[in-house]
């Protein structure tokens, strides 16, 4: 069973829900927010690097190159500039599609690679895998894809998704059995939740909602869920105690036992 925790808007409590759920049901946790991975701040496992994320990069053989520009004309990412006696690659624009190598008539392009991120693994109570994209890189999706190679076929996996509704989020959600959408009852939270819900529907994955900071804002999220027939799986009230525990990197369900039980019940409902 693969459960993805997503939200659209950032800072609504994805990591809080993913961490507390994984701890309560003893699942393996995957931090797919590779731009800003936070889950291990709460798990506190001693992480070891298990893999490098590499992207294919063209390498130009200037002895064979005739500077015909066919590669640059093919490249949709404008990652190659061909000058009169040199070829320049802009690596952060390159998607690693490999098209330039195929179009080169002189066999002057070979495959190199460069590292854009790393995969870590550790254990403290539960197992955690984490992807980290290198600072300055633009492409988070290949890092998520690599991390997902470690998702186990048996057992329960909880995936903590990045914010937004773009490519890295889709890569995370893809192949999940269930999506938990964490939102807050505010206009910003509601607006972005609707987009994330549309995305889950588009990918044909069943979804349920956790309303975090319940009690602030308004009732627009609840109304929408009622009208659309989306299950509200849990409401986490706004509480200074929970906020403070969060700020210190302590999962609140391991501190407040009745919440551990609530997360187990939540899993019973979706599992």
């Amino acid at each position: 069973m693969i459960i993805t925790v997503a939200s659209g808007k950032g800072g609504t409590g994805k990591t809080t829900v993913a961490v507390n759920l994984a701890l309560a049901i003893e699942a393996t946790l995957y931090d797919c927010d590779v731009e800003e991975p936070n889950a291990n701040i709460f798990i506190k496992a001693d992480l070891q690097k298990v893999d490098d994320v590499k992207l294919m990069n063209p390498v130009f053989d200037l002895q064979k190159c005739t500077f015909c520009k066919k590669c640059a004309e093919f490249c949709k990412y404008n990652a190659i500039a061909v000058l009169s006696s040199d070829v320049i690659l802009f690596p952060e624009l390159c998607s690693g599609c490999g098209g330039c190598k195929i179009v080169c008539p002189y066999d002057a392009i070979s495959e190199g690679s460069r590292s854009i991120g790393e995969i870590y693994h550790g254990k403290n109570g539960i197992e955690i895998y984490q992807g980290v994209m290198n600072v300055g890189e633009a492409r988070a999706t290949p890092v998520v894809a690599k991390l997902k190679e470690y998702v186990k076929k048996d057992g329960i996996s909880v995936l903590d998704a990045p914010p937004g509704n773009g490519c890295p989020v889709i890569e995370t959600m893809h192949g999940s059995d269930f999506v938990i959408l964490v939102t807050e009852p505010t206009p910003f939270g509601f607006h972005d939740f609707k987009i994330a819900y549309e995305l889950a529907k588009k990918l044909d994955i069943p979804a349920g909602v956790v309303i975090n900071r319940y009690g602030v804002g308004d009732d627009s999220v609840e109304k929408y869920c009622r009208d659309e027939g989306v299950d509200v799986l849990m409401k986490i009230p706004y509480s200074r105690e929970i906020a403070e525990l969060y700020s210190k990197g302590i999962p609140f369900a391991s501190h407040i036992p009745e919440w551990r039980k609530k997360f187990q019940e939540l899993y019973e409902v979706i599992g």
Binding site: G10, G11, D33, E35, E36, M133, V135, G136, E137, A138, R139, A140, P162, P163, G164, G166, P168
Partner: peptide
């Protein structure tokens, strides 16, 4: 700006 440090943030 969006959250994160990737493509749209850069």
């Amino acid at each position: 700006a969006p959250a994160g440090i990737g493509c749209p943030v850069i």
